[in-house]
Design a protein around this nucleic acid. Structure first.
Length: 853
RNA sequence: GCCCGCGUGGUGGAAUGGUAGACACAGGGGACUUAAAAUCCCCAGGCGCAAGCCGUGCCGGUUCGAGUCCGGCCGCGGGUACCA
């Protein structure tokens, strides 16, 4: 009997697949196509177990689809531009390009041993000039169609390093390297007009039937459609050319509770007032010192400044309200001005109390209005409340009816307009960084923005750059930057901003359909392979990446690069959880935490200890694997120790795929043992292949077809862990079975087939040991025979008042009345009834009987 | 702050509104073995001698019946537009 030797087996079968070009995808009309894609990795240096999990899931789907007769496209590439490469260049020298391509080579070498069914001939990295050149072509097409424009926007500015910082690089309002307080600075930047597609992107969500509901809900909320009232508040005295302040509100029904008008520090009026009010200028400057992220703005302490200006209430000209500048009002949303209603908004109430502004008593109420104290009254949206209607007195209405009625009245009387707004903002794509796709335009004094000519693409990144000083090296590279204008030939300057890396990942899925095309896509290939039938990736991409990709597919269609059928590029989406691990920590002499790799830990009766010193180690509950916490397991170590099949089996078996999975050494051991057992069964069963044992054979076939059915359902519905539980059970059934050799061999071959998407190498080995024809990867997926799936009798639990008390075995098709009769005859029911009659009997055929006494 | 999830034995988890804990790990017992490893078999939510009672983060609701649906909390995680 030969032992299970994954290293040998895995190399052998990977070679076989390579030689047969099993995973090379070519267009063909004799089979339905199936495009399965996992979100491509950022080449950080090493693959981690999260990658293994992501790509294994995709591989299960891909191999299952091959087996069910599909022409499968399963490509892989690299999301290769981005900040970490520049940071690496700054920290340890070298060039971002070398760092990135070196990482790609390392990670590819780590991925290949996993035995993924990938068509490596289509591989590319987004930092390949062939790829980003086509992206530049897309940009020029978008520019021509009016989908891109320039406007001013604020960025985080580090005044010491003289550089723009990402939100992630701002820590407690300070630059991560310089430690200097960050300022907001306005720059002219490029934007995609995604907001023009707000309604379209919102409405199309309804047709994404195979996306998770949570993702669709997040996208709906992100787009944030609202219906509200837009109307003017007249200033009592015009100020700096402003006669009114325009306000947008989604709660016009609370207009009679207004206490103050608030404007953003970035509102044009607020800026104009700075000129003759140094205190206000100081206040606005203070507000601008916080970062640009919404989280930071919303969590900042609410502050205000009285401008001294007054406005008249639109419904009562004698009613004057003060105008304040407030730091919580965003210029990006609505009109950058609000009215505050303290009675019905907690934030406004807090603001009024803080600055001693008048608080008008509550006027929306379920019963009788009560004066507002510390808490604002926010009525439930669906509940009718008393509502003071400024035209008809007191009405009863739900919040929405009151809002709609107010808008109708405002429009009728001409003092306001119903307006639909979206929270979604245009997508700023300019980055003041080197390691990204250059924006292919030139700035010319005479011509303004001059698009680069397509025949000059790609606009390549210069390679002779250094990262020994902060800022964008493109800005200080004269031979690259100073070029003649493509339109008039006069001396001009190249745009030195590069594109947001989200641009790179917004169309790579389309490029995979024809990675060698001399235009961004080749239409016949795009038409054949698109859409992605199954897209798999992390939930962290639920909004930005997926929304940007949906926009890009539409824009590419407008420019003739995708067919209309591909404007929703991902037919089905699955979001998987993370791989986590316990964290091991000791303390240094200053009580600072020192983290340790799982491989350095030994387990003793007294708990975890450092292998080297025996020092006791504190074990912190599982968290996402991260380098800083050292709770990482290197997939290469796992593959070397157990083989790829074990790693694959484990990441699929131990948790439902949408949830986090904790990597445990014990779990990996168990997975290995199971695979070794299957291998052992296959080698044992080589003896006496023809023996039969009729009764036992039927039992085994029954289990086999039940397993085929369950595993098929499991794979189709991403129930991998449940499918694997069935495979464990089936393996035990085979091991214990007294069936004849023929039946056992067939059962084992079927087991190999059912396991093949998860453990492809072992399955090939078992398949070939047991005389399977050809490669298991080419064998058609087994089909469950319905005749073996149904049992003649069924066991029904008997509940009394909802608690299980007994059970009866009855023929499968026994009619309800007879089931009820037999249930009532049971000892438990007779005892409970004590001679009386049941109040009610519920019979759910085939499931349960509940007797209410 | 706001939006979206998640919470079940010692552990990972299973369960179309219908027998809570499948399958697996760790644990206990046994078989085989000179012994160990490997393998195989059995036990196992908690309390209780038992009958039985309790039990899916907490509180409440809908239902004949709730882990599952609804409302309110608590805790943890993801996103929050320049991390990818």
């Amino acid at each position: 009997m030969s032992r299970y030797t994954p290293a040998e087996i895995e190399t052998k079968w990977q070679t076989a697949w390579d030689e047969a070009e099993t995973f090379r995808a070519t267009r063909s009309d004799d089979k339905p196509k199936y495009y399965v894609l996992e979100m491509f990795p950022y080449p950080s240096g090493r693959i981690h177990m999260g990658h293994v999990r992501n790509y294994t899931m995709g591989d299960v789907i891909a191999r299952y689809r091959i087996a069910t007769g599909h022409n499968v496209l399963h490509p892989m590439g690299w999301d290769a531009f981005g900040m970490p490469a520049e940071n690496a260049a700054m920290e340890r020298g070298g060039h971002p390009k070398d760092w990135t391509y070196g990482n790609i080579a390392d990670m590819r070498a780590q991925m290949k041993p996993l035995g993924l069914s990938i068509d490596w001939s289509r591989e590319f990295a987004t930092c390949d000039p062939e790829y980003y050149g086509q992206q530049q072509a897309l940009f020029l097409d978008f520019l021509e169609k009016g989908l891109v424009y320039r406007k001013n926007a604020t960025v985080n500015w580090d005044p010491v390093d003289m550089t723009v910082l990402a939100n992630e690089q701002v820590i407690d309002g300070k630059g991560w390297r310089s430690g200097a307080p960050v300022e907001r600075r306005e720059l002219t930047q490029w934007f995609f007009k995604i907001s023009e597609y707000s309604e379209e992107l919102l409405e199309a969500i309804d047709r994404l039937d195979n996306w998770p509901d949570k993702v669709k809900l997040m996208q709906r909320n992100w787009i944030g459609k609202s219906r509200g009232l837009q109307f003017d508040w007249a200033l009592t005295e015009p100020s700096h050319g402003h006669e009114t302040i325009v306000v947008y509100t989604t709660r016009p029904d609370t207009l009679l509770g207004a206490s103050f008008l608030g404007i953003s520090p970035d509102h044009p009026l607020a800026k104009a007032l700075e000129a003759d009010n140094p205190d206000l200028a100081a206040f606005n400057a203070e507000c601008r010192r916080t970062g640009t992220s919404e989280e930071e703005l919303e969590r900042a302490e609410k502050k205000g400044f009285d401008t001294g200006l007054k406005v008249r209430h639109p419904l009562d000209p004698t009613w004057e309200l003060p105008v304040w500048v407030a730091n919580f009002i965003l210029m990006d949303y609505g009109t950058g001005a609000i009215f505050g209603c303290p009675a019905h908004d907690q934030r406004d109430l807090d603001f009024c109390r803080k600055y001693d502004l008048p608080v008008i008593d509550t006027f929306l109420a379920i019963d009788d209005p009560t004066p507002v104290e510390a808490e604002a009254f926010v009525p439930p949206k669906t509940e009718k409340v008393k509502w003071i209607n400024h035209f008809t007195g007191i009405d009863m209405a739900t919040g929405q009816d009151a809002i709609d009625a107010t808008i109708t009245q405002a429009e009728r009387d001409g003092w306001g307009t119903g307006v639909t707004k979206y929270r979604l903002r245009d997508w700023g794509l300019s980055r003041q960084r080197y390691w990204g796709c250059p924006i292919p335009v030139v700035h010319c004094e005479a011509c303004g923005v001059a698009p680069e000519k397509k025949e000059n693409l790609p606009v390549r990144l210069p390679e002779d750059v250094s990262f020994d000083q902060p800022g964008n090296p493109l800005d200080r590279h004269p031979t690259w930057r100073d070029v003649p204008c493509p339109a008039c030939g006069a001396p001009a300057k190249r745009e030195t901003d590069t594109m947001d890396t989200f641009v790179d990942s917004s169309w790579y899925f389309a490029r995979f359909t024809a990675p060698d095309a001399e235009t961004p896509t080749r239409m016949e290939d795009a038409a054949y392979w698109m859409n992605v039938d199954q897209y798999i990736g992390g939930i962290e991409h639920a909004i930005l990446h997926l929304l940007y990709s949906r926009f890009f597919a539409r824009a590419m269609h407008i420019c003739g690069h995708l067919p209309e059928s591909a404007i929703e590029p991902f037919d089905a989406l699955f979001t998987q959880g993370m791989v986590t691990h316990e964290i091991y920590v000791t303390r240094d002499e200053k009580d600072r935490p020192v983290y340790h790799l799982p491989g350095d830990i030994e387990w003793h009766e007294s708990g975890a200890r450092l292998g080297a010193t025996g020092e006791a180690v504190e074990v912190i509950p599982s968290a996402k694997m991260s380098k800083s916490k050292k709770n990482v397991v290197d997939p290469s170590d796992i593959i070397e120790r157990y083989g790829a099949d074990t790693a694959r089996w484990f990441v699929l078996s131990d948790s439902p795929p949408e949830r986090d999975v904790e990597w445990t050494a014990a779990g990996a051991d168990a997975a290995y043992k199971h695979l070794a057992r299957v291998h052992r069964l296959a080698t044992e069963e080589l003896v006496d292949p023809s023996a039969e044992n009729p009764g036992e054979d039927e039992e085994l076939y029954r289990a086999m077809h039940r397993t085929i059915h369950d595993v098929t359902m499991g794979v189709e519905s991403f129930g991998f862990n449940a499918a694997i539980a069935k495979l464990y059970a089936f393996t035990s059934t085979i091991a214990r079975s007294n069936a004849g050799g023929h039946a056992k061999r067939e059962a084992l071959r079927t087991l190999a087939q059912l396991m093949a998407p998860m453990t492809p190498h072992l399955s090939e080995e078992v398949w070939s040991l047991l005389g399977g024809e050809g490669l298991v990867v080419d064998a058609p997926w087994p089909v469950a025979d319905e005749a073996f799936l149904v049992d003649d009798t069924v066991t029904l639990p008997i509940q009394i008042n909802g608690k299980r008390r007994d059970e009866i075995e009855v023929p499968k098709d026994l009619d309800k009345a007879e089931v009820e009769k037999r249930a009532l005859a049971t000892e438990a029911v007779q005892k409970a009834l004590a001679g009386g009659q049941p109040r009610k009997v519920i019979v759910v055929p085939g499931r349960i009987v509940n007797v209410v006494v």
